[in-house]
Amino acid sequence: MDKYQINHLKELEAESIFVIREVAAQFENPVMLFSGGKDSIVMFYLALKAFYPAKVPFPLMHIDTGHNFQETLDYRDKLMESTGTKCIVRYVQDSIDKGRATEETGYNASRNKLQTVTLLDAIEELKFDAAMGGGRRDEEKARAKERFFSHRDEFGQWDPKNQRPELWNLFNGNKNMGEHFRVFPISNWTEMDVWQYIYMEDIELPSLYYTHQREVFERDGVIMATAPFMKLRENEKPKIMSVRCRTIGDITCTGLTLSTANSLEDIILEVASSRVTERGGRADDKRSDAAMEDRKKEGYF
């Protein structure tokens, strides 16, 4: 590498910091969505870097399905306190109680899709004009077509066939009243980049990402955590296993990986040798070939 070259992680970092600063400069009332997963943790860390020594000039928002791992919530509260950041929380349960969303029933019931209602309501209520998310293009094929600055109409919908072309470093956040943008600062990162960056920068993660003993059961070949709201079938027997999360969604749709990885080095080796994608364990994507595209059009993250 030449004297004036930076490695791929530093280049991705520079690109993401540029995008986050562009959001702060172009929008009046932006928000950063935070789930407690590794991608949103890295995105928030990049925001800290972008404005240091000033505080992050926008709040975070967590859409809480009520089906979170407790470890995620503890981690979130600690991180907000140590960095002096405001985190708004909106609950899917409130949307259900108000009749804005209808709870799914059955064994595979998930509140994953209902988050969209809560999110769009919160954006309207709090008048956010840009919501940053930790989506990555390598996650899923519909996301591969997503822009950094993704325009949403007044109904919060995405029109994948009519997206604004995005060239060079020039991001067009101009919009009409009532419209908003979704912005994806870490669009160009892969799962491996995220892990390598966490390692390079020594970023603390929720304990769920490391191996731990947990009560689990198997469904359609996927290992899932038990919880009071998880309905088990006859043949699904809870047992204790050594597992870790490769990705964290809510409990109902997060597949766990059998793993003994208890350090970032172990995790990176495990990711490098893995033969399934991290979303391979996500029940929400398996619903159909275009499951993600359909959810995104409606206004999902």
Binding site: A142, K145, K161, N188, T190, D289, E293
Partner: peptide
């Protein structure tokens, strides 16, 4: 990536791959 593309067998937008 998009449903329309898979059905029609064409690429209609920029897709990013890694």
């Amino acid at each position: 990536g998009l449903r329309a593309e898979r059905e029609q067998g064409i690429t209609i937008d920029v897709a990013y791959r890694y």
